[in-house]
């Protein structure tokens, strides 16, 4: 079970969070077209390695936390607020 540091609440158990997927995809502009939205909704890289993702502190402060997590080792390199830019370690 991950120990995730919520920027508002501090280190909290994974059980308090809900996973909300890839945090690197950005919602396209309204007129970007179906293909751009298709990619936004469906197309994912599924990387083996570091991944920046959303974790919703659903049983806590209800804030979305940005988490840089290693999908193989489950190590967490950084967490931050949604507007933060988090450094992603080299593999």
């Amino acid at each position: 079970m991950h120990l995730i540091t919520c920027p508002w609440c501090g280190p909290r158990d994974e059980a308090e969070f809900a996973y909300r997927g890839d945090a690197t995809v950005a919602r396209p502009a309204a007129d970007a077209g179906i293909d751009a939205f298709y990619d936004y909704v469906y197309t994912r890289a599924n990387p083996r390695g570091w991944h920046t993702e959303w974790w919703h502190h659903a049983a806590g402060c209800h804030q979305f936390v940005k988490v840089v997590r290693h999908t193989l080792t489950h190590a967490i390199a950084a967490t931050g607020k949604p507007t933060d830019t988090l450094p992603v370690p080299a593999e």
Binding site: A18, R20, A23, H56, F64, P82
Partner: peptide, 14 residues
């Protein structure tokens, strides 16, 4: 719905 609103307010249109 609450989570959907939070996601959009916090991450899509902060």
């Amino acid at each position: 719905v609450m989570e959907h609103m939070e996601f959009h307010a916090q991450t899509v249109w902060p």
